[in-house]
């Protein structure tokens, strides 16, 4: 399977990654190489095998670690907002986005 230019544009948009016209060919080739690997995986007979959702899924006698319902985090807004490009009145500011 190989990607069409349309498919490439679509997944680039979904991932919010800008791919210039000059880059298109190279990116397509590299992604096609990845898809080739996936084709190899798809060819393996997996009948009767339960799908895993995690590398450790069912392999170790471990359960997902859970947290007791307690507030353990203090307010560190000031420190966090020092790293933000813009903040005002406690809000992070971003270019206007209205859906």
């Amino acid at each position: 399977m190989s990607l069409t230019p349309d498919q490439l544009r679509r997944i680039a948009l979904l991932a919010r990654i800008e791919v210039s016209d000059a880059e298109q060919r190279g990116v397509t080739e590299r992604l096609n190489a990845v898809l080739g690997l996936i084709d190899q995986l798809q060819a393996v007979d997996t009948r009767g095998i339960e799908p895993m959702s995690h590398p450790l899924d069912g392999r170790l006698p471990v359960r997902q670690r859970l947290r007791a319902d307690e507030v353990t985090e203090a307010d560190r807004r000031e420190a966090y907002q020092k790293g933000a490009p813009a903040a005002e009145k406690g809000l992070y500011l971003v270019p206007k986005v209205i859906e």
Binding site: K89, G90, L91, Y92, L93, P95, K96, I98
Partner: peptide, 15 residues
Amino acid sequence: KSLHENFTDLSGIDL
């Protein structure tokens, strides 16, 4: 939450 009032070309984000 995104807040659009009080800002002209910006949105305020409260997480």
